[in-house]
Design a protein around this nucleic acid. Structure first.
Lengths: 149, 149
DNA sequence: TACCAATAGTTAGTGTGACAAATATATAAA
DNA sequence: TTTATATATTTGTCACACTAACTATTGGTA
């Protein structure tokens, strides 16, 4: 394997990830879901874990704080999420889905599963295992680098 | 494999791709490369194919036209790329690297290979083949969908 | 108590990605 | 020639990623 190849694999990874996101976003749009792919990810996690702080949620979805702040802003505007002041710590909020937000998650969940399925056609169960193992290896190779410096 | 899993794999793919890009960008920054990861991709392709039009280049790097226009704008400002009017077609340009751009590519190429290599540690040659096959399968599953509608 | 470091979250700036619409030019058809 | 259609690029808008800088608050420590 020549060094040149490493850049090609990085490119391929980026290209495919963008395609997967773009495809999902197009389907979200044509289905009038009223949320983006990333907004959905946030709502889904909130539906499974109530009263998270923004920092806890950011760690769950692997987004940085400024990005999450804006996504939460948008979801609040849309009426799907509320920031509730933390009873003890005035710096932080407890996030939770509104009634509207909960029913949105319930109604979208099965549709989104169908959309996500499309990407994984023509792959075997073993392929999924391999794929996950390789992605995790790559992630770990690059993670924690900042601690070593 | 339950339906729920498909979303998890999509998430894992997105997370890893972002990590790979973020790691490279951090290294670019700490090395004072004066270009971003995507700007580098564009310059590398221009160094291998001179006098491309923006459309041809966009197809090579899988970016849409507005995105490429803005990346080229930035590279022109930095003095690495020039737009030369096409001799026959006044709508389009022939892109080429300036002298400065060429020497930038020459000097950065080996450093970037080292950076890219880091992501692929602890993986076997067979893993690379599998990874490429799976990524290509996913891409093809979602590509051309717009033609079928 | 007063100070100080750490933490939670926001804001600002830049770059990128996707999409729609606009402009200019080229090419083909009537 | 005029019209219609296609192509190349740009502009505008919204969303997301990352960095750096900032505010407010907390908690420990002198």
């Amino acid at each position: 394997m020549t060094q040149e190849q490493y850049s090609k694999y990085s490119f391929l990874l980026d290209r495919t990830a963008r395609k997967v996101k773009q495809y999902a976003q197009q389907q979200f749009k044509s289905g009038d879901f009223d949320v983006t792919v990333d907004q959905w990810l946030v709502m889904k996690n909130l539906s499974e874990n109530d009263a998270l702080s923004q920092t806890e949620l950011a760690n769950l979805v692997f987004k940085d704080h400024p990005t999450l702040t804006r996504i939460i802003d948008l979801l609040c505007k849309k009426g799907y999420v509320e920031r509730v002041p933390h009873p003890q710590d005035r710096r932080s909020f407890q996030l939770h889905l509104t009634e509207t937000g909960v029913s949105k998650v319930v109604s979208l969940r099965p549709e989104i599963h169908n959309i996500r399925e499309k990407a994984w056609e023509n792959l075997s169960p073993n392929d999924f295992d391999e794929f996950k193992r390789i992605l995790d290896t790559i992630y770990q190779n690059l993670n924690g680098e900042s601690l070593e410096q």
